[in-house]
Amino acid sequence: MNIALWIVTGLLATAYLLSGAGKLIMSKEKIASFGPSAGWVEEFSAGGVKAIGALEVLAAVGLVLPAVLDIAPILVPLAAVGLVLIMIGAAIVRFRRHEIKLMMVDLVYVVLAGFVAWGRFGPESFVG
């Protein structure tokens, strides 16, 4: 179980680090030019897109560093819960925009982050 949690954590951290960094580096207009899957940026200000990117980067770092450095490892499941909340918000935006297929992808991320939160709060906790 611990290996599965680390694999999922690593995949999530990589995906959110890259995604969040892209949101921080690129302009809102550049992100929107990626096509229909990036149309969600129309619903947010440029600052809002940057804030989402910053939260994604922080969550990615929070998924890995506390456990690796053994400094406040309780932050790992808390970061996973944060990602669950971010992705529930993303799914709601997709639903409002009638982007059901993309919403399903967001829900997969909810399940994966939820798995990490459950595993690290419960059976494979770093504390206790």
Results as ranks from 00 to 15, higher is better:
residue 127 V to K: 06
residue 96 R to T: 13
residue 106 D to E: 04
residue 76 V to E: 11
residue 44 F to Y: 14
residue 39 G to S: 14
residue 109 Y to P: 10
residue 81 V to H: 01
residue 42 E to A: 02
residue 8 V to M: 07
residue 30 K to Y: 09
residue 66 P to A: 10
residue 31 I to W: 01
residue 77 P to S: 02
residue 87 M to G: 06
residue 91 A to S: 09
residue 46 A to V: 13
residue 108 V to W: 06
residue 128 G to I: 13
residue 1 M to K: 08
residue 47 G to M: 15
residue 20 G to E: 10
residue 4 A to H: 10
residue 127 V to M: 14
residue 2 N to I: 13
residue 23 K to P: 15
residue 83 L to K: 07
residue 53 G to M: 08
residue 128 G to H: 09
residue 99 E to C: 07
residue 48 G to C: 09
residue 127 V to E: 15
residue 94 R to T: 05
residue 91 A to Y: 02
residue 103 M to G: 15
residue 41 V to W: 01
residue 89 G to I: 02
residue 58 L to M: 12
residue 40 W to S: 03
residue 27 S to T: 13
residue 2 N to K: 07
residue 3 I to S: 04
residue 124 E to Y: 00
residue 17 L to A: 08
residue 36 P to I: 06
residue 67 A to G: 12
residue 6 W to T: 11
residue 102 L to I: 07
residue 1 M to W: 09
residue 108 V to E: 04
residue 19 S to I: 04
residue 83 L to N: 03
residue 19 S to L: 11
residue 122 G to A: 02
residue 106 D to H: 00
residue 22 G to R: 03
residue 63 L to P: 10
residue 122 G to N: 09
residue 73 P to L: 00
residue 99 E to L: 02
residue 123 P to V: 01
residue 95 F to M: 10
residue 23 K to W: 06
residue 121 F to C: 02
residue 127 V to I: 11
residue 118 W to E: 11
residue 1 M to H: 06
residue 39 G to N: 15
residue 52 I to Y: 02
residue 100 I to P: 05
residue 38 A to Y: 03
residue 105 V to W: 03
residue 59 A to Q: 01
residue 74 I to T: 14
residue 76 V to Q: 02
residue 85 L to H: 07
residue 9 T to Q: 12
residue 77 P to V: 03
residue 117 A to K: 08
residue 90 A to E: 15
residue 34 F to N: 14
residue 36 P to M: 05
residue 66 P to C: 08
residue 47 G to N: 13
residue 78 L to D: 11
residue 96 R to W: 01
residue 47 G to V: 09
residue 82 G to V: 02
residue 22 G to H: 01
residue 122 G to C: 08
residue 120 R to S: 02
residue 45 S to F: 05
residue 105 V to R: 06
residue 54 A to M: 15
residue 12 L to W: 00
residue 21 A to G: 11
residue 27 S to E: 13
residue 111 V to L: 06
residue 98 H to R: 12
residue 81 V to Q: 07
residue 101 K to R: 12
residue 90 A to W: 00
residue 48 G to I: 09
residue 46 A to Y: 11
residue 37 S to A: 05
residue 121 F to Y: 00
residue 14 T to S: 14
